[in-house]
Simulated scan of single mutants.
Amino acid sequence: MIDIAPLSTSLNQAKVTQQTSLAVMKLAMETGKQTANEQVKMIEKSKDPNLGKVIDKSV
């Protein structure tokens, strides 16, 4: 005969672990998204419209 109480406890612990992992993953994804957006903004601000138009060459 199966004891229901330990089985229920075990299933609840697994559920909590899964929910915690999902919450951490969502947080990591959001942080990554924010970091990427900030990097894009920094790159856009640092663009020089004259960059790459003239090449200095010495022989």
Rank of each mutant, 00 (worst) to 15 (best):
Q13N: 15
P49K: 00
A28W: 10
I2K: 10
V59R: 10
T35E: 13
D56P: 00
A14L: 04
Q39D: 02
P6Q: 02
K15F: 09
L27N: 13
T31I: 11
M42D: 04
A36W: 07
S8T: 15
K57I: 14
V40I: 15
M42L: 10
I4E: 13
L7S: 10
M25Q: 11
A23M: 06
L11M: 06
N50V: 03
T31D: 09
K57C: 15
Q18S: 15
K26Y: 00
Q18M: 06
Q34W: 01
A5F: 02
Q13D: 11
K41E: 15
S21Y: 00
I43Q: 14
S8L: 12
M1F: 10
P6S: 13
E44N: 14
V54C: 03
I43G: 04
S8Y: 07
E30M: 13
T17E: 05
D3M: 00
K53N: 02
D56C: 00
S58C: 00
M1T: 07
S10E: 11
V54E: 13
K45M: 04
L7H: 05
A23W: 00
K26P: 01
Q34G: 05
Q13Y: 07
N37V: 13
K26D: 02
S46T: 10
S10H: 07
L7N: 09
T35K: 13
T35A: 15
M25L: 14
T31Y: 12
M42R: 08
M25C: 03
I4K: 10
A5R: 00
A5T: 01
T20C: 02
V54I: 01
Q34K: 10
I43L: 11
G52Q: 01
V24L: 09
L51V: 03
S58E: 12
E30L: 13
T31S: 12
V54P: 01
I2P: 14
V40K: 09
V16Q: 09
N50E: 06
V24N: 03
Q39H: 02
E30D: 10
Q39W: 05
L51R: 09
V40F: 07
G52D: 01
K53I: 06
L11V: 09
V16G: 02
T35Q: 04
P49Q: 02
D3K: 08
A5N: 11
M42G: 08
K53G: 08
T9P: 03
V54A: 04
I2M: 12
I2S: 14
M1N: 14
M1A: 14
G52T: 04
T20S: 08
S10W: 05
V54M: 02
Q39L: 14
A28N: 12
K41H: 06
L7T: 12
K45I: 05
G32V: 05
S21I: 04
K53S: 08
Q39F: 03
E30S: 11
L7D: 11
L27P: 07
D48R: 11
Q13K: 08
N12E: 08
Q19T: 01
L7E: 15
K33Q: 11
Q18Y: 10
P49D: 05
E38I: 12
S46K: 11
T35W: 07
T9W: 00
N12C: 03
V40C: 02
A23F: 04
A5S: 09
S8A: 14
T9F: 07
T35S: 08
E30C: 13
L27G: 15
N37S: 11
L7R: 03
N12K: 08
K15I: 15
M29T: 07
K53M: 05
S21C: 06
M29L: 10
